[in-house]
Simulated scan of single mutants.
Amino acid sequence: MSGRTDSDAEPAIAEADAPEEPDAPHGHVADAQDVADDEDAEDAEDADGARRARWTAAGTGGLLCLAGCAAALLRLTGSAPALVPVAYAVGAAPCALAAVLGARGRTRRSLWLLVAGTAVMALGDQFD
């Protein structure tokens, strides 16, 4: 292959020759402040998403914990085998832990604890 690379062939483009942004006013060139504002907006959206995930994990964990405890108490007073209310109570424990971890921002661990707790409660329901 012959010839030289194009990396040094073109002079650097001056800021005045930079292309305009499509939504910028006529003659306006994007500067560092515009880029920083865009990054701040993205950071705010990420923070909102993380906050929403924490609230969802904490709320779901609390709700499943209450449901498991209520089901354990209802099955305890009924004629179900002893293993059924125990399974509901044991399944509610990881859901309570998931609520705490979710509130602290550990949403992935919280999700897996919610899955495990719900699976234990569902398995216990099969013994009825």
Results as ranks from 00 to 15, higher is better:
A96R: 09
E10Y: 10
G91F: 05
P19K: 09
G105S: 00
R75C: 09
E10W: 09
G124A: 09
L97R: 07
R109N: 05
A12F: 09
I13L: 14
G78S: 15
H28V: 04
G78I: 09
D125R: 11
G102T: 12
S110F: 01
P81L: 04
A9V: 11
T60I: 14
G78Y: 10
G68K: 06
A57H: 01
G3I: 01
A36D: 14
R4Q: 12
A116L: 11
D34W: 08
L66E: 09
G27D: 11
D125M: 06
L101Y: 08
A18C: 00
L111S: 14
G91H: 06
Q33Y: 05
D17T: 04
A92R: 13
L97V: 07
A70V: 10
V90Q: 06
L101R: 15
R108H: 07
G102L: 11
R104C: 03
L83S: 12
D40N: 13
A24R: 13
L101H: 09
P85L: 11
D17A: 13
P94Y: 00
A50R: 12
D37W: 04
I13W: 02
G78R: 12
R51L: 11
L74P: 00
A98V: 03
P25N: 13
G49Q: 13
R108K: 10
L111M: 10
T56D: 10
R106W: 01
S110T: 05
W112H: 12
S2Q: 08
A122K: 05
A96W: 02
V35N: 01
A98L: 07
R109Q: 10
T107C: 00
A9Y: 03
R4D: 11
G124C: 08
